[in-house]
Amino acid sequence: MKVLVCISNVPDTTTKVRFIDDNRKLDTTGIQWVINPWDELSLTRALELKDVASNGIEKVTVAHVGSVAAEPVIRKALAIGADDAIRVNAEASDAYFVASQLAEVIKQNPYDIIMCGIESSDHNGSTVGGMLAELLGIPSVSAVSSLSIENGTFVLTREIDGGKENVQVPAPFVAVVQKGIAKEPRIAAMRGIMMARTKPIAVVEPAAIEAYTEVMGYEMPKPRAACKFVDAENAGQLIALLQNEAKVL
């Protein structure tokens, strides 16, 4: 059985973003790139599943659509423990473009479990996983907070509004994962970092796909009014302000 983990590289989550080119492009100066937090967790879960021999997972591959600039992040995924990687050599113009490129890769070389994060912390789209499943015509389970293999059956927990459901789906399927899928992201050990240097990254040229959407520009959130302080001794006054001034109570 083979597992594919789709990874996105995103600015470190503490980055104060700035834009250039008439607010059309992210200013990447000084940005630290990291594996999207959910993708790091899904890779961790994939490796945990592979560690249990009876699960029968031979290989965990990571896939990324992006330029050569993302290779450090891909190497990091290999250092954490992925066996190999595929990079589709193209600027990720929108979610549909990315999902279509990934679908092409998977059609060439099928996987049993495909994992995507619930969103990327840059575009916040929550779209690639579901699109990929539809393009492949296979089931998807979204908001997955646990994934295990029990006697060859895939058991997933998904979050619904106001609860949780335990579900089963046949492979191949796409699991769109969220919090809970793994406790802490696995960290690369020295040995892993050494080994990652020789692990293969296959570079694939993109298929001709037209994006559905285009970012016209970015805007910064409006600065909020300065904070109005209420004295701790008279904390109760806050309630009156919320009621009469802000009118939210």
């Binding site: 600015p11 989550t13 980055t15 104060k16 973003v17 834009f19 992210l26 912390s121 840059d122 575009h123 916040n124 994006a211 559905y212 959407t213 285009e214 970012v215 016209m216 520009g217 970015y218 805007e219 910064m220 959130p221």
Partner: peptide, 16 residues
């Protein structure tokens, strides 16, 4: 207009 960069910005998105 949609959320981008986890709430640190908004993107004006053209749907084609």
């Amino acid at each position: 207009q949609k959320r981008a960069y986890s709430g640190n910005a908004f993107a004006n998105l053209l749907i084609k």
